[in-house]
Computed example of a mutant assay.
Amino acid sequence: MQSTLGIGFAGAGPVTQAIHLPTVARLGGEFTVRHVTDVDPAVAATVAGRLGASHSTSIDVLLDDPHVDVVVVCSPHRFHAEQVIAACRAGKRAVLCEKPLVMSVAEADAIAAVSAETGVPILVGAMHTFDPGWRAAQAAWGDLPARSHTIRSSIVLPPNARFEDLATEVLSRPALPSVDRSDPEMVAGLLHALVMGLTIHDLPLIRSLLPRYDDLRIVDARVLEPYGYRIVFVASGKVVELHAVLSQTWEPDWVLEAYADDQVLQVEFTPSYVHAGSAVSTLSGGGEARVFGPTACNGYEAEWRELAAVVRGETAPPKIEELVDDVRFALAVADAAADSVRKTEVAA
Protein backbone atom coordinates (compact mmCIF):
# COMPACT_ATOMS: atom_id res chain seq x y z
CA MET A 1 0.00 0.00 0.00
CA GLN A 2 1.24 3.50 -0.85
CA SER A 3 2.62 5.46 2.09
CA THR A 4 1.40 8.70 0.50
CA LEU A 5 -1.98 9.34 -1.03
CA GLY A 6 -1.95 9.08 -4.81
CA ILE A 7 -3.55 12.03 -6.58
CA GLY A 8 -5.09 12.14 -10.04
CA PHE A 9 -5.86 15.52 -11.59
CA ALA A 10 -8.77 15.72 -14.01
CA GLY A 11 -7.80 18.91 -15.80
CA ALA A 12 -4.35 20.50 -15.86
CA GLY A 13 -5.11 24.17 -16.45
CA PRO A 14 -3.89 27.21 -14.52
CA VAL A 15 -5.71 26.27 -11.29
CA THR A 16 -3.92 22.92 -11.21
CA GLN A 17 -0.58 24.35 -12.26
CA ALA A 18 -0.44 27.57 -10.24
CA ILE A 19 -2.51 26.71 -7.15
CA HIS A 20 -2.81 23.01 -6.41
CA LEU A 21 0.60 21.70 -7.46
CA PRO A 22 2.57 24.31 -5.45
CA THR A 23 0.30 23.59 -2.47
CA VAL A 24 0.78 19.82 -2.72
CA ALA A 25 4.55 20.36 -2.94
CA ARG A 26 4.50 22.27 0.36
CA LEU A 27 2.78 19.38 2.12
CA GLY A 28 5.77 17.09 1.78
CA GLY A 29 4.94 13.44 2.21
CA GLU A 30 1.14 13.60 2.40
CA PHE A 31 0.45 13.29 -1.34
CA THR A 32 2.07 12.13 -4.55
CA VAL A 33 0.70 13.15 -7.94
CA ARG A 34 0.26 9.92 -9.87
CA HIS A 35 -1.79 10.86 -12.91
CA VAL A 36 -2.66 13.98 -14.90
CA THR A 37 -5.48 14.06 -17.45
CA ASP A 38 -6.19 16.94 -19.80
CA VAL A 39 -7.94 17.26 -23.15
CA ASP A 40 -4.75 18.90 -24.46
CA PRO A 41 -2.25 16.02 -24.74
CA ALA A 42 0.74 18.38 -24.73
CA VAL A 43 -0.39 20.04 -21.49
CA ALA A 44 -1.11 16.67 -19.86
CA ALA A 45 2.29 15.27 -20.89
CA THR A 46 4.26 18.36 -19.85
CA VAL A 47 2.60 18.83 -16.46
CA ALA A 48 2.85 15.11 -15.70
CA GLY A 49 6.46 15.08 -16.85
CA ARG A 50 7.38 17.73 -14.30
CA LEU A 51 6.02 15.40 -11.61
CA GLY A 52 7.06 11.97 -12.82
CA ALA A 53 3.37 11.08 -13.15
CA SER A 54 1.36 9.20 -15.75
CA HIS A 55 -0.72 11.20 -18.19
CA SER A 56 -3.69 10.76 -20.48
CA THR A 57 -6.48 12.62 -22.23
CA SER A 58 -9.24 10.46 -20.76
CA ILE A 59 -10.89 10.56 -17.35
CA ASP A 60 -11.56 6.82 -17.77
CA VAL A 61 -7.83 6.11 -17.95
CA LEU A 62 -7.26 8.15 -14.80
CA LEU A 63 -10.02 6.32 -12.95
CA ASP A 64 -8.58 2.95 -13.99
CA ASP A 65 -5.16 3.88 -12.57
CA PRO A 66 -4.71 1.82 -9.37
CA HIS A 67 -2.19 4.33 -8.02
CA VAL A 68 -4.83 7.08 -7.86
CA ASP A 69 -6.51 7.21 -4.44
CA VAL A 70 -8.04 10.68 -4.69
CA VAL A 71 -9.43 12.41 -7.78
CA VAL A 72 -9.12 16.19 -8.00
CA VAL A 73 -11.59 17.64 -10.50
CA CYS A 74 -10.23 20.84 -12.06
CA SER A 75 -11.97 20.61 -15.41
CA PRO A 76 -14.40 23.22 -16.81
CA HIS A 77 -17.55 23.59 -14.73
CA ARG A 78 -19.81 21.73 -17.13
CA PHE A 79 -17.83 18.50 -16.62
CA HIS A 80 -17.78 18.54 -12.81
CA ALA A 81 -20.92 16.51 -12.16
CA GLU A 82 -20.15 13.63 -14.50
CA GLN A 83 -16.53 13.40 -13.36
CA VAL A 84 -17.34 13.53 -9.65
CA ILE A 85 -19.99 10.85 -10.10
CA ALA A 86 -17.60 8.68 -12.14
CA ALA A 87 -14.89 9.01 -9.47
CA CYS A 88 -17.34 7.95 -6.76
CA ARG A 89 -18.49 4.95 -8.80
CA ALA A 90 -14.85 4.01 -9.45
CA GLY A 91 -14.42 3.50 -5.71
CA LYS A 92 -11.80 6.18 -5.14
CA ARG A 93 -11.11 7.14 -1.54
CA ALA A 94 -12.23 10.76 -1.94
CA VAL A 95 -12.97 13.47 -4.47
CA LEU A 96 -11.87 17.10 -4.28
CA CYS A 97 -13.85 19.17 -6.79
CA GLU A 98 -13.02 22.74 -7.64
CA LYS A 99 -15.82 25.22 -7.12
CA PRO A 100 -18.57 25.28 -8.21
CA LEU A 101 -19.41 21.68 -7.47
CA VAL A 102 -22.07 21.64 -10.20
CA MET A 103 -24.07 23.99 -12.38
CA SER A 104 -27.62 22.81 -11.69
CA VAL A 105 -29.77 21.64 -8.82
CA ALA A 106 -30.42 18.36 -10.64
CA GLU A 107 -26.67 17.70 -10.82
CA ALA A 108 -26.29 18.53 -7.12
CA ASP A 109 -29.01 16.05 -6.22
CA ALA A 110 -27.38 13.38 -8.41
CA ILE A 111 -24.04 13.86 -6.65
CA ALA A 112 -25.69 13.71 -3.23
CA ALA A 113 -27.30 10.41 -4.22
CA VAL A 114 -24.11 8.81 -5.51
CA SER A 115 -22.10 9.99 -2.51
CA ALA A 116 -24.68 8.42 -0.18
CA GLU A 117 -24.73 5.24 -2.25
CA THR A 118 -20.94 4.78 -2.53
CA GLY A 119 -19.80 6.38 0.73
CA VAL A 120 -17.07 8.29 -1.12
CA PRO A 121 -16.43 11.62 0.64
CA ILE A 122 -16.56 14.79 -1.45
CA LEU A 123 -14.88 18.09 -0.68
CA VAL A 124 -15.43 21.30 -2.64
CA GLY A 125 -12.46 23.56 -3.23
CA ALA A 126 -14.07 26.83 -2.15
CA MET A 127 -10.85 27.68 -0.34
CA HIS A 128 -12.24 30.49 1.81
CA THR A 129 -14.40 28.02 3.72
CA PHE A 130 -11.19 26.27 4.89
CA ASP A 131 -9.19 29.44 5.58
CA PRO A 132 -7.87 29.45 9.18
CA GLY A 133 -8.49 33.19 9.54
CA TRP A 134 -12.14 32.76 8.54
CA ARG A 135 -12.68 29.67 10.67
CA ALA A 136 -11.22 31.35 13.76
CA ALA A 137 -13.62 34.27 13.38
CA GLN A 138 -16.52 31.91 12.77
CA ALA A 139 -15.76 30.07 16.01
CA ALA A 140 -15.68 33.36 17.94
CA TRP A 141 -18.55 35.39 16.48
CA GLY A 142 -21.31 34.13 18.80
CA ASP A 143 -24.77 35.02 17.55
CA LEU A 144 -23.59 37.35 14.76
CA PRO A 145 -25.50 35.33 12.09
CA ALA A 146 -28.76 36.03 13.90
CA ARG A 147 -28.06 39.69 14.66
CA SER A 148 -26.29 40.88 11.50
CA HIS A 149 -28.29 43.06 9.11
CA THR A 150 -25.81 43.79 6.29
CA ILE A 151 -23.31 41.56 4.51
CA ARG A 152 -20.87 42.80 1.89
CA SER A 153 -18.42 41.01 -0.40
CA SER A 154 -16.03 43.24 -2.35
CA ILE A 155 -13.51 41.75 -4.77
CA VAL A 156 -11.05 43.84 -6.78
CA LEU A 157 -8.50 41.82 -8.73
CA PRO A 158 -6.30 41.99 -11.78
CA PRO A 159 -6.84 39.19 -14.30
CA ASN A 160 -5.50 35.90 -12.96
CA ALA A 161 -2.48 35.84 -15.28
CA ARG A 162 -0.62 38.38 -13.14
CA PHE A 163 -0.51 35.99 -10.18
CA GLU A 164 -0.43 32.74 -12.15
CA ASP A 165 2.89 33.76 -13.67
CA LEU A 166 4.33 34.48 -10.23
CA ALA A 167 3.43 30.97 -9.07
CA THR A 168 4.66 28.91 -12.01
CA GLU A 169 5.17 28.74 -15.77
CA VAL A 170 1.59 28.30 -16.93
CA LEU A 171 1.48 26.33 -20.16
CA SER A 172 -1.85 27.61 -21.46
CA ARG A 173 -4.73 29.67 -20.20
CA PRO A 174 -8.22 30.46 -21.47
CA ALA A 175 -8.87 33.97 -22.77
CA LEU A 176 -11.50 36.16 -21.17
CA PRO A 177 -14.73 35.70 -23.12
CA SER A 178 -15.76 38.23 -25.72
CA VAL A 179 -19.25 39.45 -24.87
CA ASP A 180 -21.61 41.47 -27.04
CA ARG A 181 -22.80 43.98 -24.43
CA SER A 182 -25.74 44.92 -26.66
CA ASP A 183 -27.22 41.41 -26.35
CA PRO A 184 -29.27 41.04 -23.13
CA GLU A 185 -28.85 37.27 -23.12
CA MET A 186 -25.06 37.53 -23.35
CA VAL A 187 -24.95 40.15 -20.59
CA ALA A 188 -27.13 37.96 -18.38
CA GLY A 189 -24.94 34.94 -19.19
CA LEU A 190 -21.80 36.88 -18.30
CA LEU A 191 -23.25 37.89 -14.93
CA HIS A 192 -24.28 34.30 -14.21
CA ALA A 193 -20.78 33.07 -15.11
CA LEU A 194 -19.14 35.68 -12.89
CA VAL A 195 -21.28 34.69 -9.91
CA MET A 196 -20.58 30.97 -10.38
CA GLY A 197 -16.88 31.52 -11.11
CA LEU A 198 -15.89 34.37 -8.76
CA THR A 199 -18.57 35.18 -6.19
CA ILE A 200 -18.78 31.45 -5.51
CA HIS A 201 -15.67 31.79 -3.33
CA ASP A 202 -17.63 33.83 -0.78
CA LEU A 203 -21.18 32.53 -1.19
CA PRO A 204 -20.81 29.59 1.24
CA LEU A 205 -19.52 32.06 3.82
CA ILE A 206 -22.43 34.40 3.19
CA ARG A 207 -24.87 31.51 3.44
CA SER A 208 -23.52 30.71 6.91
CA LEU A 209 -24.67 34.19 7.95
CA LEU A 210 -28.19 33.76 6.52
CA PRO A 211 -30.82 31.76 8.44
CA ARG A 212 -32.63 31.16 5.13
CA TYR A 213 -32.66 32.41 1.56
CA ASP A 214 -35.95 31.16 0.11
CA ASP A 215 -37.21 34.75 0.20
CA LEU A 216 -34.25 36.09 -1.83
CA ARG A 217 -35.16 39.24 -3.74
CA ILE A 218 -32.87 41.15 -6.10
CA VAL A 219 -32.74 44.90 -5.48
CA ASP A 220 -30.15 45.75 -8.12
CA ALA A 221 -28.00 43.75 -10.54
CA ARG A 222 -25.66 45.05 -13.18
CA VAL A 223 -22.50 44.14 -15.08
CA LEU A 224 -19.56 46.52 -14.61
CA GLU A 225 -16.80 47.33 -17.09
CA PRO A 226 -14.41 45.83 -18.05
CA TYR A 227 -15.43 42.65 -16.18
CA GLY A 228 -17.36 42.83 -12.95
CA TYR A 229 -20.71 43.15 -11.27
CA ARG A 230 -22.73 44.83 -8.57
CA ILE A 231 -25.54 42.77 -7.08
CA VAL A 232 -27.71 43.78 -4.14
CA PHE A 233 -30.31 41.41 -2.73
CA VAL A 234 -32.38 40.92 0.40
CA ALA A 235 -32.78 37.56 2.15
CA SER A 236 -33.83 36.72 5.71
CA GLY A 237 -34.33 40.45 6.26
CA LYS A 238 -30.62 41.11 5.60
CA VAL A 239 -29.13 43.27 2.85
CA VAL A 240 -26.37 41.52 0.90
CA GLU A 241 -24.13 43.49 -1.45
CA LEU A 242 -21.81 41.74 -3.88
CA HIS A 243 -19.26 43.77 -5.80
CA ALA A 244 -16.39 42.72 -8.03
CA VAL A 245 -14.19 44.28 -10.68
CA LEU A 246 -11.34 42.70 -12.64
CA SER A 247 -8.96 45.45 -13.69
CA GLN A 248 -5.34 45.68 -14.80
CA THR A 249 -4.82 48.97 -13.02
CA TRP A 250 -6.20 48.57 -9.48
CA GLU A 251 -4.47 46.99 -6.52
CA PRO A 252 -6.00 43.69 -5.39
CA ASP A 253 -8.45 43.89 -2.49
CA TRP A 254 -10.73 41.08 -1.30
CA VAL A 255 -12.92 41.78 1.73
CA LEU A 256 -15.97 40.15 3.29
CA GLU A 257 -17.89 42.11 5.95
CA ALA A 258 -20.88 41.48 8.18
CA TYR A 259 -22.52 44.21 10.28
CA ALA A 260 -24.74 44.01 13.34
CA ASP A 261 -25.79 46.99 15.46
CA ASP A 262 -23.01 46.34 17.97
CA GLN A 263 -20.57 44.07 16.15
CA VAL A 264 -18.65 44.09 12.88
CA LEU A 265 -16.78 41.30 11.14
CA GLN A 266 -14.18 42.15 8.50
CA VAL A 267 -12.24 39.43 6.70
CA GLU A 268 -9.39 40.37 4.35
CA PHE A 269 -8.38 37.58 1.96
CA THR A 270 -5.32 37.30 -0.23
CA PRO A 271 -5.98 36.87 -3.98
CA SER A 272 -6.63 33.30 -5.11
CA TYR A 273 -3.31 32.68 -6.83
CA VAL A 274 -1.15 34.30 -4.15
CA HIS A 275 0.41 31.80 -1.73
CA ALA A 276 0.64 34.31 1.10
CA GLY A 277 -0.95 32.80 4.18
CA SER A 278 -4.41 33.01 5.65
CA ALA A 279 -6.97 35.75 5.78
CA VAL A 280 -6.93 38.33 8.57
CA SER A 281 -10.28 38.52 10.36
CA THR A 282 -11.25 41.30 12.75
CA LEU A 283 -14.24 41.09 15.08
CA SER A 284 -15.05 44.52 16.51
CA GLY A 285 -17.59 45.32 19.20
CA GLY A 286 -17.96 46.27 22.83
CA GLY A 287 -15.04 48.66 22.61
CA GLU A 288 -12.54 46.00 21.54
CA ALA A 289 -11.25 44.36 18.38
CA ARG A 290 -10.15 40.75 18.20
CA VAL A 291 -7.84 39.85 15.32
CA PHE A 292 -7.43 36.34 13.93
CA GLY A 293 -4.54 35.62 11.58
CA PRO A 294 -2.60 35.77 9.50
CA THR A 295 -1.23 32.26 9.73
CA ALA A 296 1.23 30.68 7.32
CA CYS A 297 -1.44 28.20 6.18
CA ASN A 298 -3.78 29.57 3.51
CA GLY A 299 -7.18 28.20 2.50
CA TYR A 300 -5.77 25.95 -0.21
CA GLU A 301 -3.26 24.32 2.11
CA ALA A 302 -5.98 23.94 4.75
CA GLU A 303 -8.33 22.22 2.29
CA TRP A 304 -5.61 19.77 1.25
CA ARG A 305 -4.78 19.04 4.89
CA GLU A 306 -8.45 18.41 5.59
CA LEU A 307 -8.65 16.17 2.53
CA ALA A 308 -5.79 14.04 3.89
CA ALA A 309 -7.42 13.87 7.32
CA VAL A 310 -10.75 12.80 5.81
CA VAL A 311 -9.16 10.05 3.70
CA ARG A 312 -7.19 8.75 6.68
CA GLY A 313 -10.31 8.72 8.84
CA GLU A 314 -9.01 11.37 11.23
CA THR A 315 -11.88 13.79 10.68
CA ALA A 316 -15.43 13.57 9.37
CA PRO A 317 -16.02 14.68 5.77
CA PRO A 318 -18.20 17.70 5.03
CA LYS A 319 -21.88 16.87 5.02
CA ILE A 320 -23.01 16.42 1.44
CA GLU A 321 -26.30 18.14 2.33
CA GLU A 322 -24.36 21.29 3.24
CA LEU A 323 -22.41 21.21 -0.03
CA VAL A 324 -25.64 20.78 -1.97
CA ASP A 325 -27.24 23.70 -0.12
CA ASP A 326 -24.22 25.84 -0.98
CA VAL A 327 -24.85 25.05 -4.65
CA ARG A 328 -28.56 25.76 -4.35
CA PHE A 329 -27.82 29.14 -2.78
CA ALA A 330 -25.22 30.05 -5.40
CA LEU A 331 -27.59 29.12 -8.22
CA ALA A 332 -30.42 31.07 -6.59
CA VAL A 333 -28.24 34.19 -6.54
CA ALA A 334 -26.85 33.66 -10.05
CA ASP A 335 -30.23 32.87 -11.61
CA ALA A 336 -32.03 35.76 -9.93
CA ALA A 337 -29.29 38.27 -10.76
CA ALA A 338 -29.08 37.12 -14.38
CA ASP A 339 -32.87 37.33 -14.74
CA SER A 340 -32.89 40.82 -13.27
CA VAL A 341 -30.17 42.14 -15.56
CA ARG A 342 -31.82 40.45 -18.56
CA LYS A 343 -35.07 42.29 -17.87
CA THR A 344 -33.23 45.56 -17.35
CA GLU A 345 -31.28 45.23 -20.58
CA VAL A 346 -34.40 44.34 -22.57
CA ALA A 347 -36.27 47.31 -21.09
CA ALA A 348 -33.40 49.64 -22.01
Rank of each mutant, 00 (worst) to 15 (best):
S148M: 11
Y227C: 00
A338I: 07
E345F: 10
E241C: 06
I19C: 01
G287F: 06
D202S: 14
R217P: 01
E169Y: 09
S208Q: 13
A338T: 04
F9A: 08
V341M: 04
L256W: 04
R173F: 05
F233K: 10
T16G: 09
A188L: 07
G197K: 08
D165G: 12
A289G: 01
A167R: 15
L27I: 02
V324P: 07
V291P: 02
S281G: 11
P271E: 04
I231V: 15
T57C: 13
R328N: 03
P271S: 05
V120C: 04
G8A: 13
R217S: 15
A302P: 11
I59R: 08
V61K: 14
Y259M: 10
G293Q: 05
P252C: 04
H35M: 04
T249M: 08
P294E: 03
A146I: 10
A136N: 06
D214M: 11
I151N: 09
E345T: 12
R26Y: 01
A110R: 14
G299H: 05
D326H: 08
A336F: 06
L63Q: 11
A296G: 02
R290H: 11
G49H: 05
E107D: 15
R50D: 05
Q83H: 10
V15R: 15
A140N: 07
N298W: 07
G287C: 07
Q17F: 06
T344H: 03
Y300P: 00
Y259R: 13
C297T: 14
D64Y: 07
V36C: 00
